[in-house]
């Protein structure tokens, strides 16, 4: 087999591998862009928090509050319902107005609620995260218009936006191609807009491209030379030859024809 044929076959092989990798990413992308419609909160209140606080007084309120029941039953979609619950707590524990009572309800709306819904988010669940975002982001606005309970609202908002951002980061660690999905991009952009950025980093190829754009040639060479093993260096050399030898051949042909 001549050198030209070897080079030709190697080049073909490299192009095929690159194309298959590219196609694999494209095939995996979820193009669905149907964002779940935001839920309209009803005013119904089918529970009475006071019934569950009968044996509770201000000394054991923090430890004895029925968090699990609250996470299951409360109408957390409706802000007026949450405010009424807080008013009941304030009547039981007047010394905790503006402090402990809000903290207690914040535990119910953050850590305890997360314990309840956690299984839904073990696998990539963009629709679920979008619903959480739609619910949680309202708390930021509530805190603007109601200073009295602003801390509770801000705590809830910050907690859930952090939850979404960290979930995106976790999903991304498992499958980097998720960043090409529309809903993932949507969630990531919304989180960034709210200053809850998730570290969706570049792949090694994207980092190389960025450095090429920025003309960081010495840096690229230094990283390649110091951080790659002998096999990668060899592949790099072959790739370099595949690119340059055809030019050399063309140059020689032109030179020969001129003579």
């Amino acid at each position: 087999m001549t050198l030209k044929k070897i080079i030709g076959i190697t080049a073909l092989l490299l192009i095929t591998i690159a194309l298959s990798l590219f196609l694999r990413i494209i095939m995996k992308v979820d193009y669905s862009c149907s964002i779940p419609v935001e839920q309209v909160c009803n005013n119904e209140k089918s529970y009475f928090i006071a019934d569950h606080l009968k044996n509770i007084n201000k000394t054991n309120l923090l430890d004895s509050f029925p968090y699990t029941w609250y996470a299951d039953s409360a109408n957390r979609c409706n802000i007026n319902s949450i405010k009424k619950d807080l008013a009941v707590l304030d009547s039981i524990n007047p010394t905790g107005i503006g402090g402990d009572n809000q903290q207690l309800l914040s535990i119910a709306l953050t850590n305890k609620l997360e314990e309840k819904i956690k299984p839904e988010f073990e696998k990539y669940n963009p629709d679920g995260l979008i619903k959480v975002l739609q619910w949680a982001e309202k708390f930021n606005y509530y805190s603007d218009i109601e200073e009295k309970n602003a801390t509770l609202y801000q705590v809830t908002y910050t907690y859930w936006l952090t939850f979404i951002s960290n979930k995106l980061s976790d999903y991304y660690k498992i499958d980097q191609s998720l960043k090409y999905n529309f809903k993932f991009k949507y969630l990531n952009a919304r989180c960034k807009e709210k200053q809850f950025g998730a570290p969706i980093n570049n792949s090694n190829t994207e980092k190389i491209i960025n450095n090429l754009i920025e003309n960081n040639w010495t840096y690229l060479f230094s990283r390649f030379w110091n951080d790659s093993d002998i096999l990668i260096k060899l592949i790099g050399l072959i790739a370099l030859l595949v690119v340059f030898i055809p030019y050399l051949i063309i140059y020689r042909i032109i030179k020969k024809n001129k003579q």
């Binding site: 910050t158 952090t162 960290n166 980061s169 989180c191 200053q195 950025g197 570290p199």
Partner: peptide, 10 residues
Amino acid sequence: ICVNKTLSND
């Protein structure tokens, strides 16, 4: 001034 409010788990 908050630049990023996400408390990372990493």
